[in-house]
Nucleic acid binder design. Structure first.
Lengths: 194, 194
DNA sequence: GCGTTCATGTAACCTGTTACATGATTCT
DNA sequence: AGAATCATGTAACAGGTTACATGAACGC
């Protein structure tokens, strides 16, 4: 239930509309947690019901009115309480690794192409994060926390990029020639031992 | 839609029951993709409807009967087709990083304790993965793919463990004393600029 | 006696994605 | 002229979690 808390944390910087929050989730906090505007509007309604935020209508001319949300004391308390709950690491869950697991049943050419595309994506994000991190001069606790977040993102992208390179090597035609493409027959029938 | 394909890949090793699959998801393939038994039974029903798997009842004495599922040719074709679709990297999405982002509003003692717990978890998994990887001698393409998967898991745990250590250092009382705990007032009112 | 394993499933709920809907303004 | 931005939402669906339900066998 971290969307709720990601919203409360975001509103900690000051009142925002659902629209503002959606942009915020696309930019800064989006590296740690993502949400679409439909999700955000739904969650804001719930938060208001439970008294964790209040809303204020701001009329505008020429464009739709805004609805600004602010955290209440009850909301701040909920945040503090949440921060006392243990946070389990979410293990890797990846489409691509499932394909690798069933490599024998896959289209190898397509797989190698996707691997190259992924490598590029990781390199781009690595470059972007490095640039931001290099310029960061944290002054407040919050800024320090955000920098630490950026740091794990950097490590994450760096390792994935290196892994993609290694894997491209490991799956190159020369290396693959040394492996059987087909599973031995006695593994094909009956329940596998492991 | 990778649960479908994780099941098809798993059944590639031979017929399995829903129960077997659930265990499989808790063990081997569970590192790449997870699923509960309720999810698996639901998905198997769909797969059978679409003709991607067939089922066979196996009566047992003393315990509930088993229902063994096998991939059909249509299922194998679906897998191949799936492997041609691009696989987007799923970006980091982490509870703990949201807390770090809103560090000013958190219970710091609890946070440091959770950070220590996480460090331990990462170290344990790192040790486990290292052990398995050290013994691996891939012979088939499938085994090679699984080893590559293990390798990214290893890197992932290693980096997270190191990051936890660094972050514990960065958030130690001595280091924190140099930072303002409170955001300057002009950031507290109105919409933030970034 | 009590918990675990084996083996199937259902039901309610929460979360996340995609598409639909409206309508003025501003940029290219 | 057409696309993007501002700003709100709803609806349908897909994916994932948790709890409920049953019942025999086996180890401690």
């Amino acid at each position: 239930m971290a969307l709720r808390d990601a919203i409360l944390v975001s509103l900690g910087d000051g009142p925002m509309s659902g629209y503002d929050l959606a942009k915020h989730f696309d930019e800064t906090i989006g590296f740690f947690w993502r949400a679409t505007h439909s999700q955000i509007y739904r969650e804001l309604a719930k938060l208001k019901d439970r008294g964790l935020v209040t809303s204020e209508h701001v009329p505008q001319s020429g464009r739709p009115n805004r609805i600004l949300y602010s955290v209440t004391d009850k909301g701040r308390e909920a945040l503090l309480e949440w921060s006392r709950q243990p946070a389990a690491a979410d293990p890797v869950k990846d489409d691509f690794l499932v394909r690798l697991y069933g490599l024998e049943h896959m289209d190898m050419d397509a797989l190698l192409e996707h691997l190259n595309q992924r490598l590029e994506g990781h390199r781009e994000r690595l470059a972007k994060f490095s640039r931001i991190a290099a310029e960061a001069r944290p002054r407040t606790l919050g800024e320090l926390g955000r920098l630490r977040g950026l740091e794990i993102g950097l490590r994450y992208e760096r390792e994935w990029a290196q892994w993609c390179e290694e894997t491209l090597q490991a799956l190159s035609p020369e290396n693959i020639a040394r492996f059987d493409t087909v599973v031995p027959l006695d593994n094909k029938k009956g329940r596998p031992k492991q």
